[in-house]
Structure formats: structure tokens, C-alpha cells
Design a protein around this nucleic acid. Structure first.
Lengths: 332, 332
DNA sequence: CTGAAAGCGCTTACAG
DNA sequence: CTGAAAGCGCTTACAG
């Protein structure tokens, strides 16, 4: 008992296979009476169209590949929701996989997607080299870079302006009157850390009010644990202690505020804290976190859209927005 | 300039297309000399095998579909890593999508996967009805249920024993000497809440020591916010206050402990807290959380494995494990 | 061990 | 507006 095909439908409806195909694909030339007859036959035999045959014939599948560094990272998943949303208006769908930040895995998956004739792939590159991506682009599969600083002439890209986000956070703290501010940054070799540092420096440099003092620490990861450790070090080393802390992501901010509370500091009364990312947790904390919101959903949406539009290469940068909540206040 | 096919490779290598196919598929009859010649040709023309043609011919794709309720949920994503890991040993790969807990979306995606002739699908059902899944199983696409209490005769399933996990947590608290314990449970209509409540009750009933007192609250969601609100209510209503709290998930536990700390209670000195799930955050908190670990990675791995094994329907339940960390201690 | 050939289930010019 | 037929790129008996 094989799965019913287009032939079975055609026979039952008393039409040719071409007509069945036209009905399935909404070709407008078919008469209403026949459309109905075909649809009835489809329902009766339980016909499900064979995607492989369609792809083989058409030369391109209706899937879009999405390669992220880590499935557990909420950013990528929010972006993935954006991708899904954009694609849901077309007949395309998302094929999601993780490169686990490995360049080899990335190359492997890229080839896999290419072999499946996907319409294109959204790639959050694992390394600095885009060689593997370049290769499949050369052979005809378009790639859109996602959250990458590279802007090659062969691939579109979407990214968030990390520097201006960091500047926004610093301006907020400076504007509130803070003059002794610590910056708990991520690892030095991550491009996001570099951009955020740049934004911080710009904001300080532009500040025309009374001089402000900045203490920068590079942590070894973007985690709660690192944030807590960073805060402990800060409180031990800095006297007087800073009145505000800008953290390079929300997890660091959560770790820092936990440590601060344990040391008896109240937030925001004794210490203001700003995060970055605006993960779901940020607004749920007992003291909701002021943070720099990254438009991940839109980022994913737009990346998918660029892929579907095809043709011209474009590099788009999204502006993050400051979400002021209760973790920041003027210094006491 | 079309993509090179098997014919181009065959011509260049001076062999038939059948031989090229045999080389690609590691059929052991080909002579080493020809294997080398074909591989050289493949590399030279940049051949990438057309997956659609392969699937059409073979009748089944090398993909496995995975349908989860929510991409942002870390459980599903950890399970997805398990699936990926299991599949990486075969030539299969994962096709991941979210049903957004919608029954209609689920039916739609199920059909989509079926049309792609996936080897099978791992499904975390959105509703109580398995009608749509049953349908594709009937037509020949196997389904393995994931984190569902249903155990139909047509589909295998893997799930975690929520009741025994909850019992583990309660036993731990009772064993430490707590006799006045609160249970902050999730919404009543969620099957996980029901099972966890059952486990709590069993543990209390079995407890042969001095009588223990249990206060149960059903929260309206499994979130930090709900946990914080539940804790506030608990502290306002219960005098004397409980000495230990078991929360139906880690997020509730985090919310509860935030509120407790704000009220000046120290953890675990004044209050012991146990969570459920063991999300990544749990071990990273400033007071690492004692919690019930769910083996999501293994769950995903095993589900994928059951699918690949095929044939017999099997229902497997995994046992959660208590991870004792610093948030619990004997009552003072 | 190898090659020639059929055929998987569609889509798409083409002729009528 | 409809049907007959070619062909997408593979895999797989089959004959040699």
C-alpha cells in the first residue's frame, strides 16, 4: 500500500495529472467545477504532495536554513521566531540547526543545506572566516549573515549596533548624575564586547558635564557566575565604590546584582545597574532591570525577508533601545 | 551554469553514473582505483549531491522532524541537543519547528513533515488529542511522543516521572527535618502540575516520622513573577511561616527566593528552597539551587533513538534526580 | 565489479 | 482550458 500520488488523484477525479498539479499550485486557468472535483479526490484518497519530487523538478526547495551558534541561547530563539513569522506568509518554512560555534560543523551544515536546495541560509557565523559560506554562495545558494560584523559584497547582513546601545546605557547613567561608573564587559576577543566598549568610551568622551570616571573589567564569560565574581572583585578593589554599573549583558547584570544584595547594597538606592539584551528574565526580576533591548525578533524577520527578496546585497543595522525600569536611579 | 550533477562527475572520471552513486553511498564493490578517480572528480567539479533526487528515489528522507511547543523553552532546546547528538551518528539530521502550543499549527507542521518524507517525527503534543499525529502514523510516518502522558498503542513515547521527582524533593526536605513545608505549584490544569502534586502528597503520606504540615498554592504560571507573588502571599498569610518551600519549577523558585531575600530572610538559614527542572541558571545563582534534575538531553536522545530503531512501540519513563546544592539545610 | 536503463512523483512547456 | 509527454538527478535491480 503505497502512499497515493498525483496519478491516483487524477484517475479518481477523471482529469490529467497536469490538471491536478495546476489545482495544487493554484494555477488560475482551471475551471471551478474541476477544482472541486480534484479537491474532493485529494481528500478522499488522503493525498499528501511529495515535497522531494516538487523540489527536484523546481530546482529549489521551499525551506530556508537557519544556522545558529547555540539553540539554548534565547536571542537566537527569539530571532528564530521572527524568521518563522516572516516565512509563515509564504509557503516556506525554517530548517533550524546549531553549529555549536564550530567552524567545521558550520561547513558541514552549510553543505547539507545546499544539498537540500534551500532557498537560502541565515547564518550566524562561528568564526571570522566566511570561506564555507562564500563557497555555497558562489554555487548559487544565497546567504544572509546574522549578528555578524562582516559586510562582504556577496552576502546581505543584519546586525545590531552594539556601540550605540552601549552608549545609550552610559548616557542614561551619566544623565542620572552618576560620575563613578563601572563597566563589566564580556571577554575581550568577542566582537560584541569590543563594540560595546567602543560605545561606552564614546559616551564618556562626549559627556560634556563634570568629568566622569570609568572602571572597566573584562569578564571571562557572559554568565551570571562571571557577573557575580566581577562584582565581588569590584567591591573589594574600588573605594569609594562606583554608584552605577553597566553590564555587557543581562546575565552579568543579574550576577552582579545578586552579589551586591548579599553585600547589603540596595538597588537602585545604593547602586544602579544596567544590563544589555533584554532577555525575558530582565523584566521579571524582583527589581526589574533597566537594559538595552535588542530587537531580535525583527532582526530574524528582516533577515528572512532579505533572503526572500533575494537579488541585491544589503547591509542593515538595527538600533537597540534603552528600556528604563527600576534598577536605575540618581546616586544618593 | 547549472550545478554539477552525478553525470558530470561520471563523465570526468570516465565511469558510469551508477559507479559514482556507488562511491557516494560507500557500496563496497567499487575498486579502490575507481573510488579515488571518482572522488577526485567530485572535488574538481564541486559536486554536491541533490538530496531531493535521493529522497524521491529512496522514498524516505534522511531528516527527522522535531515539533516542540516553544523554541524559547530551554527544556526543549536541551532535548533538541540530545536529538542532534543521537542523529549525528547516523546520516540523519533534525528539522526543528515550533507549534507554538497550537493544535492547528501542529497539524499543519505534521503534514509538512510528512510531505517531506521524514523518517519520523518527535512530537511534544500541543493538546490532548493525538488525531493529527495518528493520521500520519496511519499513512506510514512514525511518531514518537515527547514529554506527554499519553501512551497510545501506535506511537512510542518518552517522558519524565514528575510524581517521583516531586516526591524526591519532599523526601529531601522532610529528611532535613522540615515539618512545615509550602508547595508552590504551577497551574492546576497542566498535567505536570497534577503529577507533581501527586508526588508531593505521596511523599507526605509515606512519611513515617513526626507529622508534617503542607501548604499548597497553585500559581497561574511557571514564571519568576508568579513565584515572587506566591511567596509574598505565603509570608503574609502563614504564621508561623514555613521553614521550607518546594517550587514546581526553577523559575518559581527564583522568584520566591528573591522575595524572601527582600523580606530579610536568608537562604538556606531561614528558609530552604527546592526547585524543579535544573535549568542552567539554577546552578549559577548566588546561592546555587537544590532542584530536581530532568534528563532532557537523554530524553531527546532516546526519543530520536526509538525513532531510528523503528518497529516496536515502546513507552519509556525517565527518573528525575535530586541535585542537592546550597539552598537547602536543616531548619534552624 | 561495472554499465545501461528504468523509474521515483512531480512540474512545465507544448500542442490542440 | 486541458492533456500527453519530457525530464529534474538520483538509486537500484538487472544483465554481462
Amino acid at each position: 500500500m503505497n502512499r497515493p500520488g498525483i496519478k491516483d488523484v487524477a484517475k479518481l477525479a477523471g482529469v490529467s495529472v497536469g490538471t491536478v498539479s495546476n489545482v495544487i499550485n493554484n494555477v488560475p486557468t482551471v475551471t471551478p467545477e474541476r477544482i472541486e472535483r480534484v479537491n474532493a479526490a485529494i481528500a478522499q484518497v488522503g493525498y499528501v504532495r511529495n515535497a522531494a519530487a516538487k523540489t527536484l523538478r523546481r530546482g529549489v526547495a521551499s525551506a530556508v536554513g537557519v544556522l545558529v551558534l547555540d539553540l539554548n541561547n534565547p536571542f537566537f530563539m527569539e530571532a528564530a521566531e521572527g524568521v518563522t513569522d516572516c516565512l509563515s506568509q509564504t509557503e516556506s518554512f525554517m530548517l533550524l540547526a546549531s553549529t555549536q560555534a564550530s567552524v567545521e560543523k558550520e561547513a558541514e551544515l552549510l553543505t547539507l543545506l545546499e544539498s537540500h536546495a534551500v532557498r537560502g541560509v541565515l547564518l550566524s557565523p562561528a568564526g571570522a572566516s566566511l570561506a564555507a559560506a562564500e563557497e555555497i554562495v558562489q554555487r548559487g545558494t544565497p546567504v544572509v549573515l546574522f549578528d555578524s560584523i562582516a559586510t562582504p559584497p556577496t552576502m546581505s547582513s543584519v546586525s545590531v549596533d552594539d556601540a550605540s546601545g552601549a552608549a545609550l546605557a552610559m548616557q542614561h547613567l551619566l544623565g542620572l548624575g552618576h560620575r563613578r561608573i563601572a563597566f563589566l564587559n564580556g571577554p575581550e576577543d568577542v566582537h560584541q564586547s569590543q563594540q560595546r566598549k567602543r560605545g561606552v568610551d564614546t559616551a564618556i568622551a562626549r559627556w560634556s558635564g563634570k568629568e566622569a570616571q570609568l572602571i572597566t573589567h573584562n569578564l571571562d564569560s557572559y554568565t551570571i557566575r562571571a557577573g557575580a565574581a566581577g562584582m565581588t572583585k569590584l567591591l573589594a578593589e574600588q573605594h569609594p565604590r562606583p554608584t552605577a554599573i553597566f553590564c555587557a549583558n543581562d546575565l552579568i547584570a543579574i550576577g552582579a546584582s545578586m552579589t551586591a544584595r548579599e553585600q547589603g547594597l540596595r538597588i537602585p538606592d545604593d547602586l544602579s545597574i544596567v544590563g544589555f539584551d533584554d532577555i525575558a528574565l530582565a523584566s521579571q526580576l524582583s527589581v526589574p532591570l533597566t537594559t538595552v533591548h535588542q530587537p531580535m525578533f525583527q532582526l530574524g524577520w528582516r533577515a528572512a525577508n532579505l533572503l526572500l527578496e533575494g537579488a541585491i546585497v544589503r547591509h542593515e543595522t538595527f538600533s537597540p533601545e534603552l528600556r528604563v525600569r527600576r534598577s536605575t536611579a540618581p546616586p544618593s
